[in-house]
Amino acid sequence: MDGYINIKVRVWRQAGPKAQGHFETYELKNIFQGASFLEMIDILNEQLIAEHKAPIAFDHDCREGICGMCSMYVNGHPHGPDSAITTCQLHMRKFHDGETITVEPWRSRAFPVIKDLMVDRLAYDKIMQAGGFVSVNTGGVPDANAIPIPKPKADEAMDAASCIGCGACAAACKNGSAMLFVAAKVSQLALLPQGKIEAKQRAKNMLAKMDELGFGNCTNTGACAAECPKQVSLAHIARLNREFLAAKFSD
């Protein structure tokens, strides 16, 4: 049964991108365990505002695990200690009475901190702009069954497409690599016939953009897939490598 707990929250506070950050610890009393983690942060912010202190800046939007806005490195895990969920789907029942919860922003050179727990994830958008699309001629809507796609391939493409681009993979990676993200975005199109036409350019351009933006080199440790809220598989990384190498060798 969900009860009420008293907790301490140790939060990273940073006034701006260039400012020196530090941890600050806040005490919270009578937090309902049925509350979500972000609701707990909301309560904390109410408390801070009542004390005439600056509230904690953090990213959030849909609060149902599909937008990929929430970030936060909670107790050493992106999106907290539970598996296959985003921070907004994390509940206070995962924590016990008297616990000190450490909350940090994503830490990666390509994701600079904007303020407190907010980081700049424009890098992922730039990678998408480099090739994460298919070009189609506008006109009448084609019949959905005009291009047959085997079910296993459609399923795998769908699994890859479940990536919400939250950045947990690069945040969890000891090399600060965005390979799982790029792999998912390349795979979702590479697996389908519609994506074949631009396959070579896509793999090369997206990877080049990833390298250019300062992400690291993948060493296949698997931390990204272990922490991915959408459980995107490590196998996609092998596909990205294959796509990229095939494109380079055919040049």
Binding site: S108, G214, G216, T221
Partner: peptide, 16 residues
Amino acid sequence: NRRARGNDRYAVSGKK
């Protein structure tokens, strides 16, 4: 890779 990780390290790093 160390450069990509950045200078700020995580204060708490959980077992993956």
